[in-house]
């Protein structure tokens, strides 16, 4: 079963626990600047939006890589192999969403790999704004919200 990180910005409070958890797991320290997931603050609209790689089925980063350093694992997750990555950054240019980034201290690119199936950001989020679930069910929560707005009883009495 492929899983996906499903993000609900309405629940996000901007605490950045996800960035702290991600950077600890990946870098061994608390360092939001190196986090694979980032929370953006749209202050004037009262919105916080966590954002990270969605693991495209046809991944442009992977297509662009000249040394085949990005591979797809059995869960559909795109992984960067540090031993192969030459830091050319073509994948950063190719990614339409900006979720592949460069780590100047290692000379490699970094991106979300869903922590091998147990994402640290999900466990750290205090409001369940980030959940990890069956990718084929990913839209059903939102679908259900819209379904609830369909007032068939009101139509029946018209």
């Amino acid at each position: 079963m492929q899983k996906a990180l499903v993000i609900d910005p309405v629940k996000c409070t901007g605490c950045k626990q996800c960035e702290l958890a991600c950077s600890y797991v990946k870098e061994g320290e608390f360092n939001p600047a190196k986090s694979r997931i980032r929370v953006f603050d749209f202050h004037q609209d009262a919105r916080f939006v966590p954002y990270t790689c969605t693991q495209c089925a046809e991944a442009w980063c992977q297509r662009a890589c000249p040394v085949d350093a990005i591979t797809t694992n059995e869960w559909g997750v795109k992984e960067v192999h540090d031993g192969l990555c030459v830091g050319c950054k073509v994948c950063i240019i190719a990614c339409p969403f900006g979720t592949v980034n460069y780590n100047a201290s290692t000379g490699k690119v970094i991106k979300c790999d869903e922590c091998g199936g147990d994402p640290a950001c999900v466990k750290a989020c205090p409001t369940d704004a980030i959940i990890y679930m069956d990718v084929e069910q990913a839209g059903f929560g939102k679908m259900r919200q819209w379904a609830a707005k369909t007032d068939t009883a009101a139509q029946a009495t018209q």
């Binding site: 409070t13 901007g14 605490c15 950045k16 626990q17 702290l20 009262a46 919105r47 205090p126 409001t127």
Partner: peptide, 19 residues
């Protein structure tokens, strides 16, 4: 009140965002 906001690393999130 439009939303509540957390400060850095805070899991309480008491801050008020208003219009």
């Amino acid at each position: 009140l439009l939303a509540n906001q957390a400060c850095f690393s805070c899991t309480i999130a008491c801050g008020r965002i208003s219009k």
